[in-house]
Amino acid sequence: MSRHSAQHAYINAIGTAVPPHDIHNAFIGWARDRLTDPRSAKLFDRMAARAGIGHRWSVLPVGADGGSPVDPGGFYADAILPGTAARMELYADAAPTLGLAAIEALRAQVDLGGITHVVVASCTGFVAPGIDQLIARRLGLTPSVERLLIGFMGCYAAVAALRTARHLVRSEPAARVLVLCVELSTLHLQDTPEIEPLLAMLQFGDGAAAALVTADPSGFRLGQPFATTLDDTHDLIRWAITDQGFAMHLSGEVPGRIAQALVDPAFAVAATGGRAPQEIDGWAVHAGGRSILDAVQHGLTLPPAALDASRAVLAENGNMSSATLMFVLARLLAGPPIQDGVALAFGPGLAAEGFAFASVP
């Protein structure tokens, strides 16, 4: 029998990686050029300036003469943007590479020998064999390693991936689960003259995060998960696969609906395990945008510094879909011990999912 207890699972460490190409300012200029109405352009400038994002990183190659992907010679330089096939060809090469960079950052912190399970979350591309299989092969893992690929769940997929790892470890105490979230959101730029989708696109960047989850008591203990969907919100966040990539619809109503849900006592009890929000000393909230973080902070009446980790990740990387929550957890893991933490993410549905966590004494 294993010496480990089957009662708890732990995030022992988290490694993160982003590509070297900062595309934030270039993409802002590209998007603004699509707005011909002066009032819309003025609103766009105001919203982009207060987005709380300083950098977004992309796997897209640097264009001619060191230019961005929207400059001459870049991936998005032509009047008609690349088709889905070209975008998926890039995904098939770049997603495993970026994922492996995050795994190497994880390996620098913990021993990755004896991996028994691999859980990968990604919603920004498709390839078969899947990136779970590609990564397992490149890592030289034994063919008996069990793999799971979580796709198209969006920004809360990290919760599903870590929740799955928790279930695996609690049922098999000797399991060593490698969890990876890798997202290449910048592969899906859409040419549109409408301000709402342009502003939504300007939040997303590329990133990957890897975690080791085991029964070894170090790092963060993974507590009780929770999941719910908000009534009459299923159309507010959508992805559609088109001939020119994946088109995202992110309604401006989302922050308001989140704030409305957070004042519901039943939702608050589910998210905090019955504790008052002010008693939680560690908040890992998916950095889906400044307005979403503001909605969470105001809806739960949190102190100003409660979401500092989430705001820092947003500023440095933008919204990296499922990888974002892992970046926030990595930042908290490197900080002071947390006695009562809550991880929370939102995504298509409109769904809210999360789990409790705490530092190992």
Results as ranks from 00 to 15, higher is better:
residue 271 A to K: 05
residue 220 F to D: 02
residue 37 D to F: 08
residue 63 G to C: 00
residue 265 P to M: 07
residue 155 C to I: 00
residue 164 T to I: 04
residue 252 G to V: 14
residue 99 G to R: 01
residue 141 L to W: 15
residue 193 P to H: 10
residue 14 I to M: 02
residue 210 A to S: 02
residue 262 L to R: 11
residue 109 Q to W: 08
residue 220 F to R: 03
residue 70 V to R: 00
residue 39 R to W: 10
residue 101 A to E: 14
residue 53 I to M: 01
residue 310 S to Y: 02
residue 355 F to A: 09
residue 160 A to I: 09
residue 303 P to F: 05
residue 141 L to Y: 07
residue 61 P to Y: 05
residue 48 A to L: 07
residue 344 L to Y: 14
residue 332 L to M: 11
residue 269 V to Q: 12
residue 324 T to Y: 00
residue 331 R to Y: 03
residue 120 V to E: 04
residue 308 D to Y: 01
residue 330 A to V: 04
residue 222 L to I: 14
residue 297 Q to D: 10
residue 287 A to T: 07
residue 211 A to L: 07
residue 290 R to D: 08
residue 62 V to Q: 07
residue 113 G to H: 04
residue 201 M to P: 02
residue 52 G to V: 01
residue 249 H to T: 11
residue 162 L to G: 06
residue 108 A to H: 04
residue 345 A to P: 02
residue 47 M to Q: 12
residue 149 L to W: 12
residue 180 L to T: 06
residue 174 A to S: 15
residue 131 I to S: 02
residue 103 I to H: 06
residue 60 L to M: 10
residue 45 D to M: 05
residue 33 D to T: 12
residue 146 E to P: 04
residue 252 G to H: 12
residue 275 R to Q: 14
residue 356 A to L: 11
residue 19 P to S: 02
residue 287 A to I: 11
residue 127 V to P: 01
residue 230 L to V: 12
residue 45 D to G: 08
residue 76 Y to A: 00
residue 295 A to S: 11
residue 265 P to K: 09
residue 360 V to R: 09
residue 134 L to R: 15
residue 207 G to W: 00
residue 246 F to C: 01
residue 18 V to S: 09
residue 336 P to M: 05
residue 46 R to P: 01
residue 102 A to E: 03
residue 259 A to N: 10
residue 343 A to S: 12
residue 73 G to L: 00
residue 79 A to M: 10
residue 44 F to Q: 00
residue 173 P to I: 03
residue 284 A to H: 07
residue 9 A to N: 09
residue 13 A to T: 05
residue 109 Q to S: 03
residue 88 M to P: 04
residue 14 I to W: 01
residue 72 P to W: 00
residue 144 S to N: 13
residue 223 G to F: 09
residue 46 R to K: 13
residue 352 A to N: 10
residue 328 V to P: 09
residue 7 Q to T: 11
residue 17 A to E: 03
residue 126 F to V: 14
residue 146 E to K: 14
residue 69 P to W: 00
residue 139 L to M: 12
residue 54 G to I: 01
residue 60 L to Q: 03
residue 126 F to K: 06
residue 212 L to T: 05
residue 142 T to K: 14
residue 118 V to I: 07
residue 295 A to P: 08
residue 85 A to H: 13
residue 128 A to E: 15
